[in-house]
Write a protein that binds this DNA or RNA. Structure first.
Length: 766
DNA sequence: CTCAAGTCTCCGAAC
DNA sequence: GAGACTTGAG
């Protein structure tokens, strides 16, 4: 207990750096930072300076003489880890903070498994499969087991398996406990899935946790080494850890027991990902000598915002009572915006951003727009773009999910990890190399039978009976092509290898030759990946493709070096956790959307949605706007939702309806008059579908879909589209509700539009 | 085998 | 309304 001694000594030395450090904290925060030994539970309400405590605590440990590499800080996002390191660097010097272990569970463990994975039968170049990749494995597994994908949705199977893995249920155990047909089938697929992942030398996200546990169980000496290494551990967002995460942390902390966890049960929003709120509720039972510190003063929000958040969360039954208070001003009332439709909602938000900028001198970076589903971002983006407001989307449909980017990375992955069958299948015929479905099936059968990888099978293509001579050659040539790069891996710089490989693959040429604007876009994206690798190579001392690929597999936002830039931030409510903004908008406050429809039948879901709303409100420092639309397009169809029940849960005294109807959208910036002749494909005049009935109360000009006359589009016509502007019709196909047109929009490219949905007006007839 | 058209799913949040 | 997957003609 030498360190505790040091602590108390220190407080009696005014002017020492340790002392100064703690002066930046209030009394309770100081306690949380200075109790360095033994288990510590910090219950930290929203905006109570939790991050500040964590960073000061780590800095304090370092000042006490603890080596930075003996400290492990696990955060929920990579961004949070980066920020924490940066702030600690500020306090104790960058030299020190760089050696700290800080990151997400997944990234820290991937790093360890890269080093230790061979004990479990993986090479250091193992691939990390994201959710999309694993779906491919599920499908392959189902095919080989002859299980119908119509009957059992691969998505459902995947999420069933993942949640089992989250709770550390092995396939053997899963099969034993399967008591319905779905689980019985899922159990078989689970087993096959695990086999195939291993064969691919690949791990899914859950494996990054499970394999740590397996490693520690089978190799006590390795566990001991890491217990020695991580003598001090901190876990942020502890309320959102799942069973597997809980177990790894327990194992690592078992020896020194210097475990500090921070959390807030009111902000638990990842139940669907296996988060187990019991982990925080039971912490004191697991560690009876736990010291508990409550941070209950909020420094972030106005009294009004805090009261609104509290009145909402009061509706939850399963909640620890907590008294969060603030010394801040009352501030403005919560503003509720009623909008006619999702488009007007977006326009109103964009307009309010401008207003607040002009009248209250705010920067764009003061604003965040939050929503429940990623699909909502589009309308918001359009509106912001129309007003030339720069914005950044956090997460969402990621750059890394794009086909051409995945293809590029798959080429690299295959070279790094030739066992990776998913990557092989992705790129073997992209661009086309004359290896179609039939040939690849034969190749896969051969690989399966021999128990070898697809790449190895391709090397021996001549031996595959039932494969055409031409296909044999094509497969062999491809294997040789990849082999040439495997041979030089590690000998030439990563960026050079990547560039040469992608160049020689023909991927770039393929898009170049296609020549459409969309292809050009894809070409550009590939170039962006390659430059990113070049940057990485220049930045890192020991740059390697393995490490690069594993790192980006775990980050959604790898390339935002522009964090300091001035822009409005758009993101889901989930992504907003841990962040704060002077002005916050929450869009789509409608039943069925937020809370989502599923919550109606499941009280626990409802409580989680409510916690999510609580998280959303408490992001705001000064002002919050809640908006809802009376009509919204979902699934390309119009719906008529009711205002969210959550709006009614906010104390009435704190709410104000925002003034009147919002102004209409600014006029389109086109040249000349648009012929006001909304186009739609004909529908039979009768019988009228239910959809037509729904439209009866809508003013004619507003919606295209209810108009029945037929100004049929023809080749050569010039039309106007809401988003793409004016364009020329290249061709029209199909008829009635299925009519489609290919239209060339200058500066946008060719678009294939379903005329049933697309809002197109005719500008000129020839 | 390839390409284009047709059909189906997604829109529930992410390491 | 986009994207992934399937189907059918050449």
């Amino acid at each position: 207990m030498k360190l505790i001694k040091l602590t108390s000594d220190n407080t009696q030395q005014p002017g020492s750096r340790r002392e100064e450090l703690l002066n930046g904290l209030n009394r309770v925060q100081r306690e949380a930072a200075a109790v360095t030994e033994g288990p510590l539970l910090i219950l930290a309400g929203a905006g109570s300076g939790k991050t500040r405590v964590l960073t000061y605590r780590i800095a304090y440990l370092i000042e006490l003489g603890v080596a930075p590499h003996n400290i492990l800080a696990l955060t929920f996002t990579n961004k949070a880890a980066r920020e924490m390191k940066e702030r600690i660097g500020f306090l104790v010097g960058e030299e020190q903070s760089r050696r700290l272990w800080a990151g997400t569970f997944h990234s820290v463990f991937a790093r360890i498994l890269r080093r230790e994975g061979e004990h479990l039968g993986y090479t250091s170049a193992f691939s990390i499969y994201d959710t999309d990749d694993t779906l491919g494995i599920i499908r392959t597994a189902m095919n080989s087991l002859v299980i119908s994908q119509q009957q059992y949705a691969p998505q459902a199977v995947r999420s069933r398996i993942s949640s089992a893995k989250n709770q550390m249920v092995s396939w053997q155990e899963f099969q034993r406990n399967a008591d319905n047909i779905f689980d019985k089938q899922a159990g078989l697929i689970y087993q096959e899935y695990e086999k195939r992942l291993k064969l691919n030398n690949a791990m899914d996200f859950d494996d990054l946790l499970l394999n740590m546990i397996r490693l520690f169980e089978h190799k006590p000496d390795i566990l001991d080494a890491y217990q020695e290494r991580f003598r001090y551990m901190l876990v942020d967002e502890y309320q959102d850890t799942n069973r597997a995460q809980y177990t790894v942390v327990s194992m690592l902390a078992a020896k020194y027991r210097n475990l500090c966890v921070v959390g807030d049960d009111a902000q638990s929003i990842y139940r669907w990902r296996g988060a187990d709120i019991r982990n925080i509720l039971d912490f004191q039972r697991d560690y009876p000598d736990t010291k508990v510190v409550r941070l209950e003063q909020n420094y972030r929000s106005t009294k009004t915002i805090l009261a609104a958040a509290n009145s909402v969360i009061d509706n939850n039954r399963q909640q620890l009572r907590k008294e969060l208070w603030t010394a801040n001003d009352d501030g403005d009332l919560v503003q509720v915006l009623k909008c006619r439709d999702d488009r007007e909602e977006a326009e109103t938000i964009a307009k309010l951003v401008v207003d607040e900028q002009v009248h209250h001198g705010r920067k764009l970076s003061d604003f965040a727009v939050l929503y429940r589903t990623n699909a909502q971002s589009q309308a918001l983006e359009d509106a912001l773009r129309r007003r030339n407001i720069t914005y950044a989307i956090v997460g969402g449909v990621s750059f890394y999910k794009r086909k051409e980017v995945k293809d590029t990375l798959a080429y690299l992955r295959l070279v790094v990890n030739p066992s990776d069958g998913e990557s092989f299948m992705r790129v073997v015929n992209e661009p086309t190399r004359g290896l179609g479905k039939t040939s690849l099936e034969a190749l896969a059968r051969f690989a399966d039978a021999q128990g070898i990888s697809l790449y190895a099978a391709a090397q021996r293509a001549e031996q595959i009976a039932g494969l055409q001579k031409r296909a044999q050659n094509a497969a062999h040539t491809f294997a040789e092509f990849i082999g040439r790069f495997i041979a030089v891996l590690g000998q030439i710089p990563p960026d050079e290898l990547a560039r040469t490989l992608i160049d020689a693959s023909g991927l770039l040429r393929m898009y170049q030759e296609e020549g459409t604007d969309e292809a050009l876009d894809r070409w550009n994206n590939i170039q962006r990946v390659l430059s990113h690798i070049t940057e990485y190579t220049a930045r890192e001392e020991n740059a390697s493709l393995e490490v690069y690929l594993q790192d980006i597999a775990l980050t959604e936002d790898a390339e935002n070096s522009d964090e300091a830039r001035n822009h409005v931030t758009l993101m889901t409510l989930h992504a907003a956790k841990g962040l704060e903004f002077p002005v916050v908008f929450i869009a789509g406050m409608e039943n069925g959307l937020f809370p989502l429809g599923k919550a109606d039948t499941d009280p626990e879901e409802m409580e989680e949605e409510r916690r999510l709303f609580y998280v959303g409100i408490t992001r705001a420092e000064q002002k919050i706007f809640l908006s809802y639309a009376e009509r919204r397009y979902r699934f390309g169809e119009l719906s008529f939702p009711m205002p969210s029940r959550f709006l009614g849960e906010i104390d009435k005294k704190l709410v104000q309806q925002f003034g009147g109807t919002a102004p209409a959208a600014p006029p389109a910036t086109g040249v000349g008059r648009v012929v006001k002749q909304p186009f739609t494909a004909t529908r039979p005049a009768s019988p009228r579908g239910s959809q037509s009935v729904m439209f009866d109360d809508i003013p004619k000009e507003e919606y295209h879909s209810q108009i029945e006359e037929e100004p049929m589009l023809r080749r050569g016509m010039v039309v106007r589209h809401e988003m793409f502007g004016e364009g020329k019709v290249l061709s029209v196909s199909g008829r009635g509700a299925n009519a489609k047109a290919i239209i060339q929009f200058p500066g946008v490219g060719q678009k294939h539009l379903m005329l049933k949905y697309a809002k197109v007006t005719i500008v000129s007839m020839s």
